[in-house]
């Protein structure tokens, strides 16, 4: 059995770690509440915007490709939303796994230092790294969107994609890769958003008549794509933040719980050690008394 002092020191250390993780849990919990609220509020809007952009139907591929001046070929531009700080459980690890699965000719724009480091370590190209505060301001996400659109245009990228941890609920966040431009492959994503968020937006019956555009397709084409990219990136950032704070809250909660149970075990061990020390002492005393008596 270990020495009593050693156990006592360990209990002290675990206790102070537990206090820290508990404090972090509380901080993350309050941030999480806000982040989740913002993410949930914006969902109907973001989904409908994607749906609307998608509705421009057969026109949209041409329209978005032309207005964002996307290139041909296979070069892809992927924006990755990770976190700046660690201690958020498996969130980043899962994200990195998803990054490793992207094999083609890809360049990355990262948000949050963790992904930038990982991608640099795996010897792939990071074009820029951005940071987003906990409040996720439009001025921050607009910079990312502007940079992505400019890069896609100048670098001849064929698509702009976003990899982020989609926020499903406090316990569940899933890394998801979505192509946001061109929008020819968005149906599954819109549907899955509607389903996993249980959005109350109206379903519309199938429509095979062609759309009429007011004031004109060109005018809408000039405004809608960049508006849509800006908004999509903003709402994905909100989701990523909600995921981050939720994951951190859960990680810190389980760390605090672990600390508590560790303290219990250690206290038990400590008490045993103390008990056995006392027993030994009594034994020694009585042995000494016995020898004295017999002499």
């Amino acid at each position: 059995m270990k020495g009593m002092r050693e156990i006592r020191n360990r209990i002290k250390a675990v206790k102070s770690t537990g206090q820290i993780t508990h404090a972090m849990e509380l901080v993350a919990a309050s941030k999480m509440k806000k982040a989740q609220m913002y993410a949930e509020q914006g969902r109907a809007y973001a989904t409908l915007l994607m749906d609307l952009t998608k509705s421009v139907g057969s026109e949209i591929y041409r329209v978005v490709a032309r207005n964002l001046e996307l290139g041909q070929g296979k070069k892809r531009l992927v924006i990755v939303f990770s976190t700046d700080k660690g201690l958020c459980g498996g969130l980043n690890t899962n994200l990195f796994k998803a990054i490793s699965e992207i094999k083609d000719d890809v360049d990355f724009i990262t948000v949050g230092i963790r992904a930038a480091r990982f991608i640099a370590r795996t010897k792939r190209r990071v074009l820029a790294n951005f940071r987003i505060s906990d409040h996720v301001k439009f001025s921050e996400t607009r910079k990312i969107a502007d940079f992505a659109m400019k890069t896609a245009k100048e670098g001849g990228y064929a698509s702009i994609e976003v990899l982020y941890s989609i926020f499903i609920n406090t316990l569940k966040q899933e890394p998801t890769l979505v192509k946001i431009a061109p929008v020819d492959d968005m149906d599954w994503f819109i549907e899955s958003l509607k389903k996993s968020y249980k959005l109350d937006v109206a379903d519309h019956p199938k429509e095979d008549r062609r759309f009429v555009f007011e004031p004109s397709l060109t005018e809408i084409a000039q405004n809608l794509p960049s508006f849509y990219i800006n908004q999509a990136i903003h709402y994905m950032a909100l989701d990523a933040k909600a995921s981050e704070h939720s994951a951190r809250m859960v990680a810190m909660k389980s760390a605090s719980d672990n600390a508590d149970s560790l303290i219990q075990d250690l206290t038990l061990e400590y008490n045993k050690a103390r008990q056995s020390a006392i027993t030994t002492e009594i034994l020694e005393l009585s042995a000494a008394a016995n020898t004295e008596n017999s002499q």
Partner: peptide
């Protein structure tokens, strides 16, 4: 309040996207 003037929509309207 469409950007090109008001648009009234009734049942059976043709598919429309407007600013």
């Amino acid at each position: 309040p469409a950007s090109g003037g008001e648009v009234g929509i009734m049942e059976g309207h043709i598919p429309l996207i407007t600013m």
